[in-house]
Design a protein around this nucleic acid. Structure first.
Lengths: 138, 138
DNA sequence: TCTTGCTCCTCTAGTCACTAGAGAAGTTAG
DNA sequence: CTAACTTCTCTAGTGACTAGAGGAGCAAGA
C-alpha cells in the first residue's frame, strides 16, 4: 500500500527532488514517514501529483494549480472560477503564440536577407543594430 | 556629449537597473565615471544597448547576444556563425509555437466541454485529474 | 545659503520552478 | 558482511532581471 518517493516518482514521471520541492512549498501535504524517516505515499498522492504534473505540462503556474486543487476539493461549489483560470490561461497562451509568430516573421526575414558573406554586410547584424527596425514599429 | 545612466535609459527604453546589470555581467563595458562617481555614456553605448535590447526583444538569450556582439566587432570575418545562431533561434521559436499550439488545442477542448456547472461535474478538473488525458498520448 | 526633490550610487535579497551537489544514513541483494 | 542503491537534509545555483535599503550628488527655486 505505502511506497517510497522513488516509486511515486516512477508512477508519475515527476522527479524525486521536484516531489520534495512540491512538499516544501505546500503543493503536496507533508508525507508520513517510515521508521527510517523515509516518506511514504499511497494512491491518493499519485492522483494528486498526476493532476499537478498535467496542469504543469499545460503551462499552468504553481499558484494556479494551488487554486485548482483547492477548488477540486470542494466539489459542490460552482466551477465558474475553474473556468476563469483556464480561460485566462488560454488568453495568455494566445498572446504568447501571437508574439512568437511575429518574432518568427522578423527573424525569417532577417535570415533570408543575409547574403552569407562577411559580417560587415550581414543583414542580421544590421537589423539588430538598426534602431528603426524594432518590432514595436511594425 | 557624455550623459548619465538615466538619459541612456530614456534613449534606449532599457531600465536603469537593467543597464547596471548588463555592465555587471560584462555585456556592456564598464562606464567611465564623473567626479561624483556617476556613470557617463555616449552614442556608442546607445547603439550597443539598442542592439542588445532589440536582440532581447527577439528572444535571443544573453549568451547569444554576447556572441553576436563579438562577431559584430569583427566585420571582416564570415557571417556564417551569425546565421547559425539566428537559425537555431528560429528553430527554437518554431518548437515553442508548435508546443503552445498543442496546449491551446487541449485547453480549448477542456473549456468547451466544461458545462459551467458544479466542480464535481467540471470537465476541466476531470481532464487535469485524468492520467489518461495527458498530452504525451496525443 | 538653504532646502526640496530628483537622480544616482552600492549592496543585498527576492522572483519562478526547479536542479545540482555534498555528506550522511537507511535498505536490499548476494 | 559488503556493495550498491535509495533516501535524507541542507545549501547554493540557474536566467534575467526586479525591489528595496540607505546614503550621496546635483539642480532649481526661495
Amino acid at each position: 500500500m505505502a511506497f517510497p518517493i522513488g516509486e511515486l516518482a516512477r508512477q508519475t514521471a515527476v522527479k524525486v527532488p521536484t516531489i520534495r520541492y512540491y512538499e516544501q512549498i505546500g503543493l503536496l501535504p507533508e508525507a508520513p514517514r517510515s521508521e527510517g524517516n523515509r516518506r511514504l505515499y499511497g494512491s491518493t498522492e499519485v492522483e494528486r501529483l498526476n493532476f499537478i504534473r498535467h496542469a504543469r505540462d499545460l503551462g499552468f503556474e504553481i499558484e494556479d494549480i494551488r487554486e485548482l486543487l483547492a477548488m477540486a476539493a470542494q466539489p459542490q461549489s460552482s466551477c465558474h472560477q475553474v473556468d476563469s483560470i483556464a480561460n485566462n490561461h488560454l488568453a495568455e497562451i494566445e498572446r504568447r503564440i501571437a508574439s512568437l509568430t511575429a518574432l518568427k516573421r522578423e527573424l525569417t526575414r532577417m535570415i533570408e536577407e543575409c547574403g552569407h558573406g562577411r559580417v560587415c554586410d550581414c543583414r542580421i547584424i544590421e537589423a539588430l543594430a538598426d534602431h528603426s527596425q524594432c518590432l514595436a514599429e511594425h
